[in-house]
């Protein structure tokens, strides 16, 4: 039998052009054991990967399994490395690149404190209403709003609040899940 002819050799790559950065959301299911978060965070710092946000909570009734959602940014080849390196860790059940996999929802929640009186206070409330942000604490001169949505929406809301007396922000980071009925 004749072997299939080889694909033509590729030309040498040109001197390295900067690779475009991609933002990916990874869903990592892990055994909920001592040190597992340190393993994951340590892997990112040891290998110089970025973490934009990281959330973790146990997700099974017996507290045996946790889901860690990591938003990271890097060139495509680094993202692939991150996935492979995570999969190598012993307590890791699965790593799903939600960005790669297709449609998914990403949500994050923020608490946003603003202080002010008069017109600024009214404007803050009006903007909060547009963003469906809920006041969860109020004094005569301040609000804490709870806002949730995509990171973009949360960013936008925080930017607007800067102009009406932003004091401080606490964000949860992204929780994410693939669309449709099947688990990721």
């Amino acid at each position: 039998m004749k072997p299939t002819p080889p694909p033509a050799p590729r030309p040498a790559r040109p001197a390295s052009a900067p690779e475009p950065l991609e933002r990916h959301t990874l869903s990592v299911v892990v055994d909920n054991e001592a040190g597992v978060l340190a393993r994951i965070v340590g892997l990112f710092s040891a290998r110089g990967y970025n973490i934009e946000s990281l959330t973790v909570a146990d997700i099974s009734p017996d507290h045996a399994v946790s889901r860690i959602t990591i938003v990271t940014e890097g060139p495509r080849r680094v993202i692939d490395q991150i996935r492979a390196q995570l999969e190598r860790l012993v307590p890791v059940h699965s790593v799903t690149d939600l960005t790669e996999r297709g449609p998914h929802v990403e949500r994050e929640l923020a608490l946003v404190k603003v202080a002010g009186t008069g017109e600024k206070r009214v404007e803050a409330l009006r903007l909060a209403d547009i963003f469906r942000a809920r006041p969860v604490d109020t004094t005569t001169s301040s609000f804490i709003f709870e806002v949730s949505g995509s990171s973009g929406k949360v960013n936008q809301f925080i930017e607007l609040m800067r102009e009406v007396g932003l004091v401080e922000v606490a964000r949860t980071g992204v929780a994410a899940m693939a669309r449709g009925r099947d688990p990721a």
Binding site: P6, P9, R10, P11, R13, A84, R88
Partner: peptide
């Protein structure tokens, strides 16, 4: 630079 590369390894990373 001119080769097709095949890599066999037990560690996909």
């Amino acid at each position: 630079p001119g080769s097709r590369k095949i890599h066999v390894d037990i560690d996909p990373s």
